[in-house]
Simulated scan of single mutants.
Amino acid sequence: MTSEDQHAAPAPTSLANRYGGQKRALTRKGKRNILIAVLAVGIAFLAWVTTSAATTSVSFKDIGYSTTDATLTEVDFQVTKDPAADAKCAVKAMDSKFAIVGWKVVDIGPNPTDAGTDGGHTTGHSTQLRTESQAVSAVVDNCWIPDAGK
């Protein structure tokens, strides 16, 4: 060993010097502000979900179907929506391998308040589908409120 090696002492190290001091705990005011922010975001999200579902709400229920022959199927269904709104429903017929053999988009216009049930909200509909082969099932795939500008 040389004399230089003996004189070089390691620098004083401690955990605080190496990693920094202890973090301060969150104050009571900080915790309260975080809680208020989380509640505000939660309330805003619930309001958005509620209003977006209420403005474009449409639902459907399959009632039944009948197959006249290999080229024609009739589908019966109910639609529940705002009586003044237009809606569109996609109806499909399927074969035994679940392949789509018939497809149609049905326009549902505004309803008078004395039509159907619930003051015109729920109305029954029937449509005929042309099919490529024998259908063994027919259902409503989806219903929606079309955009007013389109």
Rank of each mutant, 00 (worst) to 15 (best):
S52R: 07
S52A: 06
A53F: 06
T56I: 07
T56W: 04
T56K: 07
V58I: 13
S59W: 04
F60A: 04
K61F: 01
D62W: 02
G64K: 10
G64P: 04
G64F: 12
G64A: 05
Y65M: 12
Y65C: 03
S66K: 11
S66Y: 02
T67K: 07
T67M: 04
T67P: 03
T67R: 12
D69P: 02
D69F: 02
A70I: 01
A70Y: 02
A70K: 07
L72D: 12
L72K: 15
T73N: 08
E74H: 10
E74I: 11
E74C: 00
V75H: 09
V75P: 04
V75K: 14
D76I: 03
D76M: 12
D76Q: 15
D76G: 07
F77N: 11
Q78N: 14
Q78A: 15
Q78F: 09
V79H: 11
V79G: 12
V79K: 10
V79D: 13
T80L: 09
T80G: 06
K81V: 10
P83R: 15
P83F: 05
P83T: 14
A84C: 02
A84V: 03
A84N: 13
A85W: 03
A85H: 12
A85I: 05
D86T: 11
D86I: 06
A87Q: 15
C89F: 08
C89N: 13
C89R: 13
C89P: 13
A90D: 12
V91L: 12
V91C: 10
K92F: 06
A93L: 10
M94I: 04
D95I: 00
D95Y: 07
S96M: 01
S96Q: 04
K97Q: 08
K97W: 03
F98Q: 09
F98E: 08
F98H: 05
A99L: 04
I100P: 00
G102M: 00
W103V: 01
W103G: 02
V105E: 07
V105Y: 00
V106L: 02
V106K: 08
V106E: 13
I108M: 03
G109C: 01
G109D: 11
G109H: 02
P110C: 01
P110A: 15
N111E: 06
N111P: 05
N111C: 03
T113G: 09
T113W: 03
D114L: 03
G116C: 08
G116A: 10
T117Y: 06
T117Q: 14
T117E: 08
G119L: 01
G120M: 04
H121Q: 12
H121I: 01
H121G: 00
T122Y: 06
T122C: 07
T122Q: 13
T123Q: 10
G124H: 09
G124N: 13
H125C: 08
S126H: 10
S126C: 01
T127M: 11
T127H: 14
T127P: 12
T127R: 10
Q128A: 10
Q128H: 08
Q128V: 07
L129F: 10
R130I: 06
R130A: 05
R130L: 08
T131K: 09
T131Q: 09
E132H: 09
E132I: 13
S133L: 01
S133G: 06
A135K: 13
S137R: 14
A138R: 15
A138Y: 13
A138M: 12
V140K: 05
V140G: 03
D141T: 02
D141K: 09
N142F: 09
